[in-house]
Design a protein around this nucleic acid. Structure first.
Length: 932
RNA sequence: GCCCGGAUGGUGGAAUUGGUAGACACGUCAGACUUAAAAUCUGAUGACCAAACGGUCGUGCGGGUUCAAGUCCCGCUCCGGGUACCA
């Protein structure tokens, strides 16, 4: 039998499809396994060889679990809203839906050719109205919800309204901005007056009109509108992301960019900070990802300390080092801090304004990149709460408005940045650490003893913190607080190709449009309007499939909206009554294994955890972490090939002789190179300029190329699409090879050099089966097969995909080396082991060895322990750790007997050469070590 | 700077709890088959010394623990990724 992979793969893909082999339904009583890949954005370039890496791994596990009797859910879909399609639409005028359709078709075809066991009947696309209808619906739930801090969970907004109606906001504790009441438009609430501190009574509430209630409720919704600063580029008429900026100019076109406050939809993810942190204990992810999320959430415990300003107001600072309170010699505010103008004296007015202009022009990223000490004194001061000393106030870029209270108490003796700042502005550095001259440098010793700190003198950091908190709290100057670095997420995009919001405005009050899908309207161009409104503002009233109120919301949702809940939709993809029927999500539950790149750590993985927790709070699903176990595959790098052109000629010299000439190194398409040997004719035909190339060959008569590992990229001609490899070697070879490359989680170079070895292995397998006979299996065969069953099963359980291929190679080599031909019965088990990796070939061989039905449904074999134990053990005998000779003994020889035999062996006597044996260590079954 | 990974032959990698370092594969070399090539098969292949038996060295570097270290501990170097004036 020949290995005709093209025919085999086509036949079986058809057979599976005709038999609906990968269609899956809930089956009561059968254990489920939900295995999911991070779904791709369908770009115009098609799938490259790096994409399938994770998909193959998950497919191997999906098929393995199927063999093990699980009901396996293994779906695939597309994250199909996104910028590239919109960019293309701007250039060509083609509707992004069309581009997206073409691209998804290509991706699907490519994936089908690789033989994945995806249930394509469950395919979803985030840009499909039947899908984003539910993204809008979930947004609606978030809009109609608040987070009850006392209960630690989200609740329907109606509960909050009831609370307000009965007791104002006195007896509820909703998650909100600390200063929510400061941002209110007070003209709406004339009777609150200037000193409004954020409390209102039931009588107040009940007297409010619709607009007033709407504004107040907006402060507590989980999806809410707020003014947020964006990078506005007037020239382009659009908002730019941080990566689209450089040196205060837009990357595209180099136009000036300014900060602008814009009314934007936000997601109150910060309400979930604590649960997002503690939930990490319940998932089986790598420590590095958990660590990154922890850092991103950035929990820190500290104290908010109040300082009284010279103008009589209270200035709050957040500190994690309250014990250094006596070392405070100045205060620094973020330039945007609300008290800046108030604390600026006449004399300093001009320099302060100057500083505000300069820092205001910089992007956040630039400000943070600048290591130079900058800042100015305001002239105003505050009083130290414990000493009563007058303390000057500065502004500086290194203090961020968005973190803590936007103000710090500077302790130059204990903080590097404060120290530099003090030195730069010649500010006093109070000495508060015993035995440290902090005029010379910062004290970073945690065991340092405090001095010059009144009640705290003589204490070390840990004790002093407790004492300082006690002092500050009891005197009313401070209170403990847990602070998070995590910020609420901006949920608006000024783009066309995203989910429209199910929101309209009536008298400027946002209204949720329920029970109606808000479809994207058609527009004449995908650009912002002349006055900077998002593209959707181009749609006239009649262009909107659904139009309500005075006007529709014209922002769209960000890329992460659809991907935050797609794993739920796969469970019930065609439901038009609900986002996902509860009985389905109860059956399938959490994703048991999630496979994808680590680059989504602080985006997708955090947002989908947030939405999952929310949906769980609303009792819409029964679990509160989406992804139980996760594997992150590594990056694939490209192996580029080079030719060497003799300068100024069209002569090309082979790698080994390149140093004899003056040469230019040029990238050459890797498809023209096989094992570093250049296809000369192919090269000439590649490009016109090489048509008359002349080659200076190596001594072996071939042209050898140079090579280097670098990022896989079109411009480096090192991109490999799976298509070519599937054509040349077959999908089964590609699947095995991608797994054989190395550990899945490590990033590694893509190099097709080794692919022939894997292809060879499959051919050897074919030959082995062709020559097999119907007869009883020999003990030798069974030993090999059962050893392999054991190895393959345990490797799959620990997700070691690469060593499985090696183990099967070894089995094939060993079986092929036996004197007798193999028996079909022994090979049957081996074919099942092969099927997760090379499913097409396994089906074909399954027929050969007399298997019934489809191999993909065969029961995974169990290793029989009687074939795993060897009769004999070959002990390496080492002397002081160095192996000198081998000793073969019956496997059941007791340890003391092994020792006696080893001691008396003539080789031992020779090696000891008359020296005395001090000690003999026998590790049964493993090693003997003689010390002497 | 901080956090997280990683470093093993010419190459990708294996060694799962401390127990024969280099499995498996590529490449290279030699051989068989062949008019020849391809395909296939067999053998060799970490470095150094040796005709051979065998020996010495060897898992980024320097120390340490241990009968025994790629694996554990301490201190570094380099590479990759993430993140950043976070109070």
């Amino acid at each position: 039998m020949n290995y005709d992979f093209l025919r085999i793969e086509q036949d079986w893909q058809e057979a599976w499809e005709n038999g609906l082999k990968y269609k899956v339904e809930e089956v009561e009583g059968k254990p489920k396994f939900y295995i999911l890949d991070m779904f791709p954005y369908p770009s115009g370039a098609g799938l490259h060889v790096g994409h399938p890496l994770g998909y193959i791994a998950s497919d191997v596990i999906a098929r393995y679990k199927r063999h093990k009797g699980f009901n396996v859910l293994h779906p695939m879909g597309f994250d199909s809203f996104g910028l590239p399609a919109e960019q293309y639409a701007i250039q060509t005028g083609q509707h992004p839906a069309l581009t997206t359709k073409a691209n998804t078709n290509r991706y699907r075809d490519q994936m089908k050719k690789i033989g994945f066991s995806f249930d394509w009947s469950r395919e979803i696309m985030t840009s499909d109205p039947s899908y984003y209808k539910w993204t809008q619906w979930i947004f609606g739930r978030l809009f109609q919800a608040w987070f009850d801090r006392d209960a630690g969970k989200a609740r329907p907004l109606s509960d909050l309204v009831t609370a307000f109606e009965t007791n104002g906001n006195f007896s509820v504790n909703p998650a909100c901005d600390d200063n929510w009441f400061k941002g209110l438009d007070m003209s709406l609430f004339p009777h609150f007056g200037e000193n409004f501190a954020g409390t209102f009574t039931a009588t107040d509430w009940n007297s409010f009109n619709k607009a007033q209630k709407s504004v107040l409720l907006m402060q507590f919704r989980l999806a809410y509108l707020a003014d947020s600063e964006v990078n506005w580029c007037p020239e382009l008429g659009t908002v730019l992301a941080n990566d689209e900026l450089k040196d205060g100019l837009s990357v595209r076109g180099g136009h000036p960019v300014e900060k602008k406050k814009m009314r934007q939809w936000m997601m109150r993810i910060t309400a979930y900070s604590e649960r997002l942190l503690s939930g990490l204990d319940d998932v089986n992810w790598t420590d590095s990802i958990k660590e990154a999320q922890k850092n991103w959430i950035g929990r820190s415990e500290g104290v908010v300390v109040k300082f009284r300003t010279s103008t009589g107001k209270s200035l709050k600072v957040f500190t994690t080092r309250p014990e250094t309170i006596y070392g405070v010699s100045f205060i620094v505010l973020a330039p945007e801090h609300e008290l800046v103008r108030e604390l600026t004296t006449e004399a300093n007015h001009q320099v302060v304004e100057q500083y505000l202009i300069v820092s205001g022009r910089k992007s956040e990223r630039e400000r943070q990149g600048d290591k130079e000490v900058t800042g100015v004194a305001l002239g105003g001061s505050v009083l130290h709460p414990l000493t009563g000393n007058e303390i000057p106030v500065y502004i500086a870029e290194y203090v961020l408005i968005g973190y803590g209270t936007g103000a710090i108490m500077a302790v130059p003796a204990g903080d590097e940045r404060d120290w530099k700042f003090a030195k730069h502005f010649n500010i006093e550095i109070p000495a508060i650490f015993d035995g440290f001259d902090t005029d010379l440098g910062v004290c970073s010793d945690d065991t340092a003893i405090l001095k010059g700190s009144k009640d705290l003198n003589g204490k070390s950091k840990k004790d002093a913190i407790t004492a300082a908190i006690e002092i500050l709290e009891s005197s009313g100057h401070g209170e403990k607080r847990v602070n998070y670095r995590l910020r609420d997420a901006v949920f608006s995009r000024q783009r066309y190709w995203g989910e429209p919001f199910p929101i309209c405005y009536v008298d400027d009050i946002p209204q949720l449009i329920e029970d109606k899908l808000v479809n994207l309207p058609s527009v004449d161009a995908y650009l912002p309007t002349a006055d900077g409104e998002p593209p959707l503002a181009r749609a006239a009233k009649e262009d909107w499939p659904v139009f309500k109120g005075d006007r529709m919301e014209t922002n769209t949702m960000p890329g992460w909206a659809g991907s935050s809940w797609y794993f739920l939709r796969f469970m019930d993809p065609h439901n038009s009554e609900a986002f996902c029927d509860r009985s389905k999500s109860d059956y399938w539950g959490q994703v048991d294994l999630y496979v994808g790149g680590a680059e989504h750590t602080t985006g997708h993985l955090l947002y989908s955890r947030f939405w999952t927790k929310f949906l769980n709070d609303m009792d819409l699903i029964g679990f509160d972490e989406p992804f139980k176990t996760m594997i992150n595959q590594g990056m694939i790098l490209g192996r580029s090939s080079f030719v060497y052109r003799v300068k100024g000629t069209s002569k090309f010299v082979s790698f080994e002789k390149r140093k004899e000439y003056q040469v230019q190194r040029l990238h050459v398409d890797v498809n023209l190179v096989d094992n570093d040997k250049l296809d000369l004719e192919g090269f000439k035909a590649w490009r016109e300029e090489y048509a008359d190339a002349v080659f200076i060959l190596g001594d072996d008569g071939t042209y050898t190329c140079g090579h280097e590992v670098e990022k896989m990229s079109k411009s480096k001609y090192n991109v490999q699409t799976p298509d070519e490899l599937v054509e040349k070697y077959g999908a089964d070879t590609l699947r095995c090879y991608e797994m054989f490359l190395g550990p899945l989680t490590q990033s590694k170079p893509w190099d097709t050099q080794g692919i022939s070895g894997v292809h060879n292995f499959l051919r050897k397998f074919v030959r082995l089966v062709s020559s097999a006979e119907d007869k009883d299996a020999s003990v030798e065969e069974l030993r090999i097969v059962h050893k392999t069953i054991e190895k393959v099963s345990s490797d799959l359980e620990r997700h070691a995909f690469n060593t499985v291929v090696s183990a099967m190679m070894i089995a094939v080599n060993e079986l092929g080396g036996l004197k007798e031909s193999c028996s079909n019965s022994a090979l049957k088990d081996l074919v099942i082991l092969l099927s997760p990796y090379a499913p097409h070939l396994a089906e074909e061989l399954w027929k050969e060895v007399g298997g019934e039905e489809f191999v993909i449904d065969a029961v995974w074999p169990e290793a029989d322990s009687q074939y795993l134990v060897a009769d004999e053990v070959t002990y390496p005998v080492s002397f002081n750790g160095k192996v000198r000779f081998k000793l073969t003994l019956p496997a059941d020889t007791p340890a003391d007997e092994v020792e006696t035999i080893a001691r008396l062996d003539e080789n031992t006597l020779k090696h000891m050469d008359g020296r005395e044996i001090h000690k003999v260590i026998v590790v049964p079954g493993r090693i003997i070590n003689i010390v002497g």
